[in-house]
């Protein structure tokens, strides 16, 4: 039982790291929560002299939780694309040419 809990805690901690790296927002809380639950249970099921692995899994999951919360609290921003803005201005000039041609036909 203890071994199964440690394996599950390990898997979800790994998933938490992936979700924390990816821009998943609050969705990252899901694997972190499960990692904390399984590592907590593994810690409780372990004998006092055999708690090193679950203890470290708990610490890592806790740290990832802080990272995920901090990342989900940062405001969403879009990059200011100067090149694209310039392309839009050029494109609008072309559009006006097309519209002038269209009006000449009509």
């Amino acid at each position: 039982m203890r071994k199964a809990l440690i394996v599950l805690a390990f898997i979800f901690t790994l998933l938490s790291v992936i979700f924390a790296i990816l821009p998943m927002g609050t969705l990252g809380l899901l694997p972190v929560g499960l990692a904390l639950v399984f590592s907590g249970l593994a810690y409780a099921k372990s004998a006092a002299n055999d708690r090193t692995v679950p203890k470290w899994l708990l610490i890592v999951a806790g740290l990832i939780l802080v990272v995920v919360i901090a990342k989900s609290m940062t405001p969403d921003e879009v990059e200011k694309d100067v090149q694209m803005e310039q392309q839009k201005i050029e494109s609008q000039k072309e559009d006006l040419k097309d519209l002038e041609e269209l009006e000449a036909i009509e």
Binding site: P23, L99, E100
Partner: peptide
């Protein structure tokens, strides 16, 4: 509003831009 030599038109534009954190992915 945009103006050609003959008419005045309304330019409607819709842009979708991913947030910076998604751009890499």
């Amino acid at each position: 509003t945009v103006k050609t030599s003959k008419n005045t038109l309304l330019h409607l534009s819709c842009n979708a831009t991913t947030y910076t954190k998604w751009d890499t992915f």
